[in-house]
């Protein structure tokens, strides 16, 4: 995975070089891209709602799953992945020789700069001022671009329906005491709080237990521009299904292309008009000469 990352980076640099040649289009684009990343955040990031999941503390009791089902009125079902009726799921990872074992809680990561919200053509998905990424079903047209765009494979569909809606964790945003799953966890493996505080707690745990946590770092502090669900793990993040993202927010990769849209609109339009005038004169001259 690391190899792919570096090659992607170098490709972006290549693009910047080409872009400079194209009259600084890219400079304008990346400036606007940063503006986009900075906007749309209500509360300062450390103040926003967040969850910290410490896989080394999780006993796999699945109380969190049940609490989620109860609170969201979801039917019990036996599934191996998140589904239209399962917004969170505990899975057990075991290495082949059985020496390494870890649970992992799957759910929406409530990205700081969510790819799902950037992709949705009708803004049905959006990030609330205080952090949760939520869904307005009444806007959704069902294009499923959000499912395609999310790097964590979170948005789900009820495929048995003819007119389904997107289904995913919304961090119990309308619940005053925060997510139901965190409230019930008996092991403090899942705690709810402000993102800044949780990061501090996570780093403290790392500092107190050197060597216990994978790479001595918190997953989600920077990955894909950061997430509001932070994860500590004793086994490699990839092993428990966390994708190796670099630090660039995913929507940024699209933003440059969108930023040059007005340039294309007026540029192509203008060039076409100029060619029209030039060739018309030529065509007339030829007609007169003939």
């Amino acid at each position: 995975m690391n190899k792919t990352n570096t090659s992607n980076l170098s490709r972006r640099d290549f693009l910047k070089v080409t872009g400079a040649g194209l009259g600084g289009l890219m400079v304008a684009a990346s400036a606007a891209g940063q503006a986009h990343a900075a906007s749309g955040e209500g509360l300062p990031l450390p103040e926003q709602w967040a969850l910290l999941y410490d896989a080394t503390k999780c006993s796999g009791c699945r109380e969190c799953e049940k609490a989620c089902k109860r609170y969201n009125n979801l039917p019990e079902e036996d599934v191996e992945d998140l589904s239209g009726n399962t917004f969170t799921l505990i899975k057990l990872y075991q290495s082949e020789d059985g020496s390494e074992k870890s649970f992992r809680k799957y759910q929406c990561m409530h990205c700081v700069d969510p790819a799902c919200a950037a992709s949705c053509p009708v803004s049905a998905l959006h990030k609330l001022e205080n952090g949760p990424v939520v869904y307005d079903s009444y806007k959704c047209i069902g294009c499923r671009y959000c499912m395609q765009a999310c790097a964590f494979g979170v948005p789900r569909y009820d495929w048995s329906l003819a007119y389904p809606f997107i289904r995913k964790c919304e961090m119990c945003y309308h619940r005053e005491t925060g997510p139901a799953c965190a409230e019930i966890c008996p092991k403090q493996a899942l705690i709810f709080g402000k993102r800044g505080d949780l990061l501090e707690i996570a780093k403290l745990r790392i500092a107190v237990n050197p060597g216990k946590y994978y790479e001595d770092r918190v997953y989600g502090e920077f990955e894909g521009g950061g997430t509001s669900v932070l994860i500590l793990s004793g086994v490699p993040f990839e092993a428990i299904g966390l994708p190796a993202l670099d630090h660039q927010p995913l929507p940024d990769r699209t933003q440059w292309a969108l930023n040059i849209v007005p340039v294309i609109f007026f540029g192509v339009g203008g060039v076409m008009h100029a060619i029209y005038e030039a060739t018309r004169r030529k065509a007339r001259k030829q007609a007169e000469e003939a």
Binding site: C120, P121, V122
Partner: peptide, 16 residues
């Protein structure tokens, strides 16, 4: 709801 694109525009979406 295909016409929703006209009223709930998202300028950050290439699909829009």
């Amino acid at each position: 709801r295909i016409w929703h694109m006209l009223i709930y525009r998202n300028l950050h979406s290439p699909l829009f």
